[in-house]
Simulated assay, not measured.
Amino acid sequence: MSQMPRSRTKSSATAPCPCGREQSYGDCCGRFHRGDAAAPTAERLMRSRYSAFVVLDADYLLRTWHPTTRPGALDLDPGQHWTGLDILSTMNGSAFHQEGTVEFRAHFVHEGRPDSQHEVSRFVRVDGHWSYLDGQNSGS
């Protein structure tokens, strides 16, 4: 099992989870990052992947990326500060589905300028675990 990722943010185990759920990071996305559990739904995987961007956990992002679309490496920009996540809609992606989509808007500040990423992400199950397949950017 991996250790809790080093963070340039204040996302300690007891801090509020960056994904926006009303739990501590350790009890919410931190347990997925550590490998203590797998995300039970596509939305929870999306939230945990957002939190991984916040805490700069590239290993988790790569582990949860579908093998057919996963890059060989991921270089996260420590100058990009993620500031919030809005889940706009979900389709399927429950414990009873094999596929699901999550539409979200992730807010960030880069070089002092606020911006956001609007995407519809597709998720599929691989060996019983949710995996990020790909996403379609929808502009800011």
Rank of each mutant, 00 (worst) to 15 (best):
T83Q: 03
D75S: 14
S2G: 01
M4R: 11
T83P: 05
R47A: 13
V126A: 02
T101V: 06
M91P: 00
T41N: 02
L62M: 11
P67C: 00
R63V: 12
Y50V: 00
G20R: 06
F53T: 07
P71M: 05
G100T: 12
R49E: 10
R21E: 14
T41C: 11
C29R: 01
E103K: 13
F32W: 13
R31Q: 10
T14C: 11
G100W: 12
Q80Y: 00
D36N: 05
E111H: 05
R70V: 15
D77P: 02
V126H: 08
Y132H: 10
C28W: 10
S12K: 10
P67W: 00
P5R: 12
D115E: 09
V126M: 00
V120M: 05
H107Q: 14
C19V: 01
L85C: 11
F32I: 03
G20D: 08
S7T: 13
D75Q: 00
T41S: 13
E43V: 14
D77E: 04
V55D: 04
H97A: 08
A73R: 15
L88W: 04
W130H: 02
L45N: 05
S48N: 09
D57V: 04
D27P: 01
N137C: 02
S7H: 06
G35F: 15
R49Q: 12
L76T: 06
R113Q: 09
D75R: 12
Y60Q: 08
L88K: 09
R113W: 00
P71Q: 00
Q3F: 04
Y132P: 04
F108L: 07
R122N: 02
F96W: 05
R34E: 12
D127H: 08
E43Q: 15
I87H: 14
H97D: 15
N92A: 15
D59I: 11
D36H: 07
R105T: 04
R6V: 09
L56A: 11
D27I: 03
D27T: 07
R113F: 08
S51L: 01
S7G: 12
G72N: 09
S116I: 03
G100D: 12
A13W: 07
S131K: 10
D127K: 11
G139H: 11
H81M: 03
W82E: 02
